[in-house]
């Protein structure tokens, strides 16, 4: 996945260190309390931007309890040793145990694609995956795409093309796009991209901009590699 981090940064000028991720912003809101809440919106954003995202520390659950299985997951390059019950779903473990809430739960039945992430560089629906089945696997979530504040070319293209409205499907859309742009078997024409992305449903109907973003990112990734 290292190629993804070689973006030259072109076209991402609007996104600098003061622009917080939504998650970082919300965390900061929780911590800074009323004073921040009464400040103007721009000041809140500036303040929030001063705090850095907390790095995800390696987690080690120790010895498993009865009925649990011990698994090792490498998530965005960080290895975790976790104890999970057999019915623990990969999506839920990432969100609830590792607090990586960028991956979204939509239908929870493999129908909407919001939970799409990469397992060993292949895009899959994490809602239909048992965590225990992924013992030893390398997982990349939306949180693992950017290099610090340098967005992945697909993230930058989504930003520039306004390829979302509510944003709930966006991380799944981006993860699918990253996978298909790295897959030589999938054609580069618009029809092939639409077909390859059909497993990611956008209820807001931002498909036109999503397609434009994916095609734009194709050029950026080619230029970067």
């Amino acid at each position: 996945m290292s190629d993804h981090h070689k973006g030259d940064g072109s076209g991402v000028e609007t996104f600098d260190a003061r622009s917080p991720s939504r998650r970082r912003f919300l965390k900061s809101m929780g911590a800074s309390g009323l004073a921040a809440a009464t400040a103007p919106a721009w000041a809140q954003i500036a303040q929030a931007g001063q705090s850095q995202a907390e790095p995800v520390e390696p987690r080690d659950d120790g010895a498993p309890a009865e009925g649990e299985q011990q698994i090792r997951l490498t998530v965005n390059g960080v290895e975790h040793t976790l104890n999970v019950t057999p019915n623990a779903v990969l999506l839920d473990v990432l969100r609830d145990r590792l607090e990586l809430t960028g991956t979204k739960k939509g239908c929870d039945q493999g129908q909407c694609g919001a939970c799409t992430l990469l397992v060993n560089d292949t895009a899959i629906n994490s809602c239909l995956s048992l965590a225990v089945s992924h013992d030893g696997d390398e997982i990349t979530t939306i949180e693992g795409l950017s290099n610090g504040d340098d967005l992945h070319p697909v993230q930058a293209a989504f930003w520039e093309h306004d390829a979302y409205q509510c944003g709930y499907c966006t991380s799944g859309q981006i993860m699918s796009a990253v996978a298909i742009l790295n897959d030589d078997n999938i054609g580069s024409d618009d029809a092939s991209v639409r077909e390859a992305m059909s497993g990611n449903i956008c209820r807001c109907g931002a498909y036109k901009n999503i397609l434009a973003a994916v095609q734009d990112a194709r050029g950026r990734m080619k230029g970067a590699s």
């Binding site: 694609g113 292949t122 899959i124 699918s176 996978a179 999938i186 059909s198 497993g199």
Partner: peptide, 8 residues
Amino acid sequence: ATTQLRNK
């Protein structure tokens, strides 16, 4: 199905 379902 879809790309990600066919992958699984």
